[in-house]
Write a protein that binds this DNA or RNA. Sequence first.
DNA 1: CTGTGCACTGAGCGGCTGCTTAGCCCCTGG
DNA 2: CCAGGGGCTAAGCAGCCGCTCAGTGCACAG
Lengths: 211, 211
Amino acid sequence: MTTGEIDESFGGVTPDAARRLLLGAVRAFAERGFHATTTRDIAGRAGMSPAALYIHYKTKEELLFHISRVGHERSVAVLEESVAGTAGAADSAERLARAVRAFVRWHAEHHTTARVVQYELAALGEEHYAQIVVLRRRSEEILRGVLEEGVAAGEFDISDIRGTALAVMSLCIDVARWFSPEGRRTPEEIGELYADLALRMAGHRTAGLPA
Amino acid sequence: MTTGEIDESFGGVTPDAARRLLLGAVRAFAERGFHATTTRDIAGRAGMSPAALYIHYKTKEELLFHISRVGHERSVAVLEESVAGTAGAADSAERLARAVRAFVRWHAEHHTTARVVQYELAALGEEHYAQIVVLRRRSEEILRGVLEEGVAAGEFDISDIRGTALAVMSLCIDVARWFSPEGRRTPEEIGELYADLALRMAGHRTAGLPA
DNA sequence: CTGTGCACTGAGCGGCTGCTTAGCCCCTGG
DNA sequence: CCAGGGGCTAAGCAGCCGCTCAGTGCACAG
């Protein structure tokens, strides 16, 4: 097993020891859950003693918060970049397809980080949770915006825009739960399939036809 | 907060003390996760001492297994009943809509149980997990069967049946993650919306038109 | 060379963990 | 009326928890 999947998101974290602790915590939280992970386990994975953890992070919860914040920032950035510079453009279908493709690929490729990000929210402290919710709202708004523009342009046929946006979001997020690198599909293939499914959900007229 | 949501699924469990322990465990596992839940917490919710737990269940893991088994059996039964007696019938679209409506409603109405059922699988012992996987495969097969019949009958337009079935399944399951009784939608409304979305994903021709 | 600062460790604190055991209470059968 | 037995509890076992602190070793400034 490589750690390449995770390095990418946390490559900018310094010093080196702080990053190693973060990487160890991501794997441990994803495997066992936050509450069931011990500081001894995290420190062990980083090749350090338990006490070293508290030089870089005040508590175990702060470690989770850092993971959650960086993870959310990355996934929102991925979503933002996928539709950047195309706002107001004619082709809403292409924008939606790009957004879903990118968001799904991130959740598949970074499924370990994504699992912590999406399923350990309840373990965050109240104040930290409030900060994360702001980031989550951003990604909802981006997706809803694409759907709204498509409906306004007559490209999409949606009766419940908010509900459909949440459903598409939910579909993408759940990839992190079931995706496995040993599975029969690559992140790219899933992204492609899901982009098509999202277009269908949005009532795009030519959805599903061969390119 | 009432316990009505949970009683329904575990009403048949006897004796009374065993059921009360099961109900306490469901709530505790849903709130904190299996590994982070203590036997003292479970017993406390059932109004008993920690030792009483071990009269009715061998270990904490066996308690999780019982919840997981009953929960899976119920959700598979709901899915089965929703399409019962309609196999081979002309209207595949109606079958798919009924299946998704029922499966989504179960995950919303029983979101506490569903959360444990869907998100604590990894905490099961190897042997118990193997038994649960059999039940999970059943629900996948039911949904895939409906899609296959619809494609064969020319009602649906799907290029990747297995992938689409998994996506619809995933969409329904994820309801358990985000659903809240305090939210703006009822389980019935979500079921209705999702039934329409599933028809669109299946490429049903008249999907989305008013009834 | 010495002095300072800091990442890091070993040992350990009070408290909690899953689970066990010895014994009590009360319902039932005769 | 008493004997038997099962549901239940109080107490406790060995071990682990998050976190702290005094002290160690090393890099670097003067």
